[in-house]
Design a protein around this nucleic acid. Structure first.
Lengths: 228, 228
DNA sequence: AGAATAATTTAGGTTAACCTAAATTATTGT
DNA sequence: ACAATAATTTAGGTTAACCTAAATTATTCT
């Protein structure tokens, strides 16, 4: 650790991490959109992050940026803070899982390593946060997952919701009211051939139609159907 | 509430609050020293705070500043956050009372009102923090106290430590190792006529000499000596 | 391929919060 | 009272992170 990173740099790193999870590059515009910042500002910051010693990103004009190992470590550190905090706000302070994001976003930049250790220990070193997102280990390794997007399922398949990857509180609340929370079991009744919208039935609930924009945020693990 | 105050403004308000508890004004230099900022920067900020609508401080050239009612409310809000956080770090995360200040200083600017309410409730709405400092109520009223500085006692008096008003971790640790923590009982054995240094004996400990610089941070409540 | 469009960068500017050095105003000691 | 000293403010400058408008480079479509 050279020196503490500012909050906005941490936010850039988190955003780049999120946009490059597929192994690609994060474009200036995508970053600008995600961060709510004008594109030229992003260009400037990427140039700066790439010029730091050690550099936190690899940046090439007109082809976006991706994290260096140092940058990724810093991003995972923040992500670990964020997700531990969410878990802990739910477990210890009784927040509902759809209301913790904002609070964690502010706290994540500010807590000490000591604090991180204490809440991790208090929670029993959890591997997922309340939304089902994996929590990087203390050594900053992201635990592997088998989750697939809900939209990739076919009619008749059965699955368990593992993760709801979304930060929008109203949408989270809607999903929650539909029973679409981590741990929920569901059957895919039908897939629309037009727009790939899904009709799913969460166990114990009425069937619902989930449009593709929504289902891409929901990650599931398929379950063997009991052949009774 | 007009709009959220920046962290540095909150720090200025806290500092002014601390320096004007005697009803006087906070001087530019005193503020500069307390905040670790150059004096001209303080002048500039005081001018700004006085020009805000509504103004947070009353400022007159060359005569320092004090808080307006709005400024005081904002300062008490931050102080409430700080002290609740300290209490809660000790109670819920097992921090020792001499190690919570730094963490609370960062968190105090960042937590939501919801968070404040939840930890206050979880702690049973405490009236003092782990150092014995009074916690402003949710309505931002500072609870009254009877504490007097340890240095104001005379030889032969008996007292209970109520508050250790100090942010320096090493000093706090020293005081803790001497048993000088909130709740401790002590006898004043002797007061030096030269420098007003005190020789005190904490119940169950060896007598110690406390110099005036130190004793001014320790606030006590006198106790009737049992006439056995 | 070449024109139209989209993405990105450059150029130039703003704001907030700090700084140092110099000028001013207040306080203190004789 | 008045000179010396201390406190404070003014003046002018820096840095980080943002912005808009214009210029450039890349991509897409026919």
């Amino acid at each position: 650790m050279t020196e503490p990173l500012t909050q906005n740099i941490q936010d850039y790193l988190k955003a780049i991490y999120g946009l490059t999870s597929d192994g690609g590059k994060a474009s200036t515009t995508a970053l600008a959109a995600r961060l709510g910042i004008a594109a030229p500002s992003v260009t400037g910051m990427l140039q700066k992050l790439a010029a730091l010693r050690p550099p936190l990103v690899v940046y090439q004009k007109h082809r976006g940026a991706h994290l260096t190992p140092e940058g990724e470590r810093a991003a995972l550190e923040v992500l670990r803070h964020h997700r531990l905090l969410e878990a802990w706000l739910v477990e210890s302070l009784g927040y509902s899982w759809d209301a913790v994001h904002e609070e964690a976003c502010k706290l994540e930049h500010v807590i000490s390593e000591e604090f991180e250790r204490r809440i991790a220990a208090a929670l029993g070193h959890p591997v997922r946060d309340p939304h089902g997102a994996p929590i990087p280990s203390a050594e900053l390794v992201m635990p592997p997952t088998n989750d697939v997007p809900l939209g990739s399922l076919h009619g008749g398949e059965r699955a368990v919701v593992r993760r709801v990857d979304c930060e929008d509180a109203p949408l989270l609340q809607r999903l929650k009211s539909l029973g679409l929370a981590p741990g929920a079991e569901l059957n895919v009744l039908e897939v629309s051939p037009f727009d790939s919208g899904l009709t799913v039935q969460v166990t114990g609930q009425k069937p619902v139609v989930i449009d593709p924009a929504t289902s891409s945020h929901i990650f599931v693990e398929t379950v063997e159907t009991m052949e009774a």
